[in-house]
Computed example of a mutant assay.
Amino acid sequence: MEAVDRAFAAALYIEGDAALDTGASLLAAAPDADAELALRGREFVRRAWDRGWQPADVVRIVRRDLDEPQVRILAGLIRDELSRYERLPARWQGQVEELPRETWRSDRFSYATAVLELYRVLLALPAIEPAGPAPGASVLGPPVHGEPKTLARIRALLAKAEATGFPEEAEALTAKAQELMARHSVDDALLAERGAGGEVPGACRIGVDAPYETAKAILLDAVASANHCRAVWNAELGFSTVVGFEGDLEAVELLHTSLLVQGTAAMTAAEAAQRAGGRKRTKTFRQSFLLAYAGRLGDLLAETARGVEAEFGGELLPVLATRAVAVAGRAEAMFPRTVSTRVRGASDESGWRDGRAAADRAHRGRMHGLDR
């Protein structure tokens, strides 16, 4: 439709508020263009899938760069576009279910402005490494019917750890979840080796949001490494891609989210104690705390996982080695040109000390004698 073409020419390819206002004015004056405007939006969404993006990835970028009205408009476009498919890739269905359901409308000019701002972001999305098949692909994998009982139990343990107000209880619950994750990974590896699996490594993307994104990316890398996965951070786009076998990927998502919640709570409590003593260097304290928390947890998580694996003896070593080679190969195929990132060192001794202590508490609960 001519009104949409003129609005797009005025607003999408020229930067600045004046261009945006011109495009929004053209759309506001053409109410019969709404259907075509929505159709173009679904085309932008479909183009994002072709470039390797998934629903949660696009929502995360829009939420970072714009506001809630654009997120709600995007959610409607995603639902409309994906309704064309009889079946979605396994991870996509969960992402769609988490989309906001509230619609957003305003006066015609404000709505047109929000839509054009959204389309500017969608149009500028770069191509990224696909983390799995897109809708309509010939191979989507088998349908998913709920999650394994072990993962459901892990999820419940971590939810309790986040909710409790008693540090010792949180420690014990988190440590039990860590041990269950390691055993779940071993069970999957042995099952695959005996011919009942046949799976290959996959990938998922996990948001790494500001502030203190470097420390958060390090924490995710630590969790991934302890669970036989590889994490590659894209600082510019605000996410890490984690490569590994499906059961391990699910464990990494669960544990990283929980440890980040627990670490943030511990950091807030430690910071309050510092302020009570007259300290004011909040930013350096938080950065140092989270860096120490991530580094220390990496060592402790790996120690727990290796301890569980040692119980199975020598039969497990060649199995894990084979899976490690497969994960490394998939990661290198997806990211052939990764570079190392220089991490700015911690500069606050108190933050570093408190962060390591919080990591020890988050891990030490395995000594509390929970039944396996």
Rank of each mutant, 00 (worst) to 15 (best):
V339T: 03
A35C: 07
A29E: 10
L158D: 00
V343R: 06
F44D: 04
D209V: 10
T113M: 03
D360Q: 10
P318I: 05
E271I: 15
L300T: 01
E147H: 00
A269E: 13
A273Q: 15
E168W: 04
G313Q: 11
E236Q: 15
T341N: 05
A33M: 03
P135I: 01
F166V: 15
G345N: 03
Q93G: 11
V319E: 07
Q54F: 07
L116C: 06
E193Y: 12
L249I: 11
G369D: 10
D371R: 00
L255I: 14
D34A: 14
D67Q: 01
R330G: 03
L39E: 02
L20Y: 06
L173T: 02
E246S: 14
Q93H: 12
E43K: 09
L77A: 04
A217I: 08
D221S: 09
G295M: 04
R51G: 11
E68I: 06
P69C: 05
L151C: 04
G23L: 10
I128F: 07
G146R: 00
L316K: 11
V327E: 03
D32W: 12
G313D: 08
P133C: 11
A189Q: 09
A251V: 04
A265F: 13
L316G: 09
T113L: 04
R120S: 01
L37F: 12
K280S: 12
T264P: 02
P31R: 03
R42C: 07
D188M: 09
A272F: 12
L300W: 01
A226M: 06
R361G: 08
